[in-house]
Design a protein around this nucleic acid. Structure first.
Lengths: 135, 135
DNA sequence: CAGTATCCTGGGGGATACTG
DNA sequence: CAGTATCCCCCAGGATACTG
């Protein structure tokens, strides 16, 4: 959709520049924020893992989506993949430099949310005066 | 070859604990990583904004989804909403304490990705040349 | 073990129209 | 201006089966 894009003067548009459509980083973001990207990054932050180890440590992920997410992340250069052509095959995944940086920051954010969960609950409780809208 | 990075044998499962199904923080995460949550948080990190200001600064968002995202984030206690019952009405949104913390960390992560975009491009280029190029 | 290939469904989310 | 309401399409992603 062709958008007006008013450029509200105040907006530095810092991120529009950095993450513009043609920039590969834009796609990277999409992969990170995809349904399973975060959890893969989080799991790998604990250490290198094999495919089924990942599947087991990420609750609810299907093999298809895990495979797809891994492929995306590896294509982005956030994750490496090593294949040992043995029988049975052994495939290991781990974080690259950039992926580690992302993962660490993700962990930091998660910790912040976890540490403030009570505050969130409190705020949600206050709101229940008018309408729960618990969705 | 991936360097050692032993799987520290820890696997603290720290996050499974913190973000278990019944924990409200789990839903918060879903909202943050939703299609537009990140961009709203990012936009509000620049300062408080009114509805249409937000719509204009977030490229591609529909009014429906913006409204929905805002409602979710406000319900989570990440964002506040202030209504001035004038004619025409004036509604302003901004970040709460927790929301600001999340937003700041998000910005940090985005900067990291942006700063390493060339590395990502390089890795992607190497891959196309059929090189293993691990890290 | 570590994946692909195929089929299929739900709801995320866009377009449009209407309201206070 | 700041939203709701409605319709409807598309594809992310789950289930299942097969392969090297």
């Amino acid at each position: 959709m062709p958008e007006g894009n008013q450029a509200t003067a105040t907006t530095p548009a810092e991120f529009s520049e950095v993450f513009h459509s043609d920039c590969p980083a834009r796609g990277v973001l999409d992969h990170i924020t995809s349904r399973w990207g975060i959890w893969v990054l989080l799991a790998l932050n604990e250490g290198d893992k094999r495919f089924f180890e990942l599947r087991d440590s990420i609750e609810g992920v299907s093999e298809k989506m895990l495979s797809q997410t891994l492929r995306d992340l590896a294509g982005d250069g956030l994750v490496w993949r090593e294949v040992e052509p043995t029988v049975p095959p052994k495939v290991t995944y781990g974080l690259n430099e950039v992926g580690r940086g992302v993962s660490v920051r993700l962990v930091d954010m998660f910790r912040w949310i976890g540490a403030n969960a009570e505050n969130l609950c409190a705020e949600q409780a206050e709101r229940t005066g008018s309408g729960p809208a618990t969705r």
